[in-house]
Nucleic acid binder design. Structure first.
Lengths: 143, 143
DNA sequence: GCGGTATAGTTGTGACCGCAAAGGAGGGTA
DNA sequence: TACCCTCCTTTGCGGTCACAACTATACCGC
């Protein structure tokens, strides 16, 4: 079962390409992607951590970088002063659009050159049953 | 296709458990495992790197730790003085045996609790077709 | 209101790893 | 021999991340 190891190398390869072309790591990219799909383009940092499978400290530093680049801004929640949202900026949305073109192309070519479409679907289904891939929707601070 | 992300979390979990119980990281463990199966319990560092999907520098530091622990020893090749083998010591073999019991149990319980045997086989087959999982047998310095 | 507990987030520390540069060694050609 | 190119390995540097400790806020029972 050492095959799962292949994933690490694939991820590094995709991340390196993304970084060279657009200055984003894989996690940067996925954080922007999640925010772009979230309601009002914002998520609590703790939800971001759970979805990205990072710890809270990891998210802090991830967002440090994205804030410095102007792709994300910090928004305080007015009903719960513990929480700080990360909100996608217009610049962040633009960067995401630019990066997604080459990134999804890269992912597709990597996977589709080795698997047929129905196999790809099978793979996704099997991996989806493993723990840690649960839904984890974006919550607001007021349910 | 974000599902591949699940692997990172799984690996971290397994590695943390392995480290807590036996003081080995996942890569430590797999290096010992590879050596235990290799001819004369030794491999060239460069082959170890290729199989573990690490760079040469990564292997240097990995083996630094294993040598410090006495699990692996450095053996120079007498016909090509560029190459240094890593050879498993008896202490390393013992540590591997001890760790493997709980580790394979952990892997099995993690995977088998979520997938049926034939699905597991399917998963292995699909992942095996991805690049970076090729055979890479252990070579000696004299073919 | 007052403690106790839970939750959100930040920071210090250390581990692991890739990349680039450099050094030592082998094998070829002139 | 002298030169060049390739291979194996190590070291310096920087990035990413988890863990633990800490602060600040919220909520519960009294």
């Amino acid at each position: 079962m050492r095959l799962l190891r292949a994933h690490a190398a694939l991820t590094r390869r995709l991340s390196a390409q993304l970084q060279a072309e657009h200055g984003l790591t894989i996690n940067d990219y996925e954080a922007l992607l999640l925010l772009s799909r979230a309601e009002e383009r914002r998520m609590r940092r703790v939800d971001l951590a759970a979805t990205l499978l990072l710890t809270a400290s990891g998210v802090t530093r991830l967002l440090d970088g994205l804030e410095a680049g102007g792709f994300v801004e910090r928004v305080l929640c007015d009903v719960d002063r513990r929480v700080a949202y990360a909100r996608l900026t217009d610049a962040g949305a633009a960067r995401l659009r630019a990066a997604s073109e080459s990134h999804v192309a890269a992912v597709r070519s990597l996977l589709e050159s080795h698997l047929r479409p129905e196999e790809l679907e099978q793979l996704a289904e099997l991996l989806g049953r493993l723990p840690g891939t649960g839904g984890a929707g974006a919550e607001t601070c007021r349910p």
